[in-house]
Design a binder for these strands. Structure first.
Lengths: 200, 200
DNA sequence: AGGGACATGTAATTAGTTACATGATTGT
DNA sequence: ACAATCATGTAACTAATTACATGTCCCT
């Protein structure tokens, strides 16, 4: 989903400015599963205007740049519809948190603990924010997606709280006496490449 | 985390070729939370070699391009350690699935149902793959991350199974009689921009 | 005979991020 | 006085994806 379609989605919720659209991705309802910054939103809006998918109305403001309110045209709604009817590509997750913890054995246990604690706080904060928001009167899709987001963050929170102590305990136990050569010889769901070569 | 560090991480698990590294990201243990394709791995390996973080040994093969086995140097291990000690940026999730379902009210209910069914199958398949893999003898970090991944996929699966019927039911009920103007006037956790402007 | 796995790499394209540029208003 | 919020936009840079280029082996 490129930024143009994301903007159409944001505008489907009501006409707004580029600045307001960004907020929807930064702190608003889309922030949990999409990204878009000024640098991609403004060019996208320009293009959408050129293509007739949105209209732009300038609202003069005292001593500020004109506020440009964008609104979907019927072609814009149609384009959004077409885009969401195509079958979506797989989700992409880029979690440096997991990557770092994957290699926890070369990490200071205290640092690992701090990382997890911060993560727990993060999930609590997100859940808090989501739950404060009453979506009962909103469209089904919106509620469904919100519920799924909550379920995921709750699962992460539960997992981290349940396993934090054991994990840090194990890390502390092995500190300084891990044999790097014994490390992870058997990949997840692949043959053991290192072992194979050793057998050559 | 750029591809260079990702490669160091892959190589920490044992010396291997670019082709094998990619498999770790495509189907292997990293596939659930990181991405890297040929187009970024090969240039990364070249740069790592130039910088002395990995060594490259060519293994001639009959009628195939030489297989180049890369291995971490001690500087490479140090660089990996430094990288994972830095505090990681926030996770990034790009879920077109959620974006599409957010706008489910302009979608054909059958299509929404199909999307969810496929998603359910996807989570089942991932969980299946993860559970087949015995990580009991592997480093703590590896097991921790695997457990967390399982917890997330299980939560998604549970949520989708629990809410599928109600969701599709609600979508079907409202088909053809939704008022687009009533749509989602109150943003998630933002003031109602449309309402504000109406009050001007 | 055709497709997929093995195996490496480059070039062109696409897309996104970051920094810059400008400037008033409001709150601490 | 300083930071944050409001408000728009461009330019430079970074990074990743996609397509291309090459060729064998093995299975159906």
């Amino acid at each position: 989903m490129d930024t143009r379609i994301l903007c159409l989605g944001a505008l489907y919720r009501g006409a707004s400015s580029g600045y307001e659209i960004r907020k929807q991705f930064e702190e608003g309802p889309f922030s949990h599963f999409q990204d878009a910054g000024f640098g991609s939103i403004y060019p996208a809006l320009r293009k959408l205007t050129e293509d007739g998918l949105v209209t732009c109305t300038e609202h003069a403001q005292n001593n500020r740049p004109d506020k440009k309110i964008y609104a979907l045209t019927s072609e814009g709604v149609a384009a959004l519809k077409t885009a969401i009817e195509a079958d979506p590509p797989e989700d992409k997750v880029r979690s440096d948190f997991m990557f770092v913890l994957f290699f926890a054995d070369i990490l200071d246990p205290d640092q690992a603990a701090m990382l997890i604690d911060r993560r727990i706080d993060f999930h609590r904060a997100v859940l808090d924010g989501m739950r404060q928001c009453d979506t009962r009167l909103q469209p089904v899709g919106r509620r469904f997606v919100k519920g799924m987001g909550e379920a995921i963050h709750q699962a992460c929170l539960d997992y981290l709280e349940a396993h934090r102590a054991d994990f840090i305990g194990e890390l502390s136990d092995q500190t300084g006496r891990r044999d790097p050569a014994s490390d992870d010889l058997m990949p997840f769901d692949l043959e053991a490449s290192t072992a194979d070569r050793a057998a050559e």
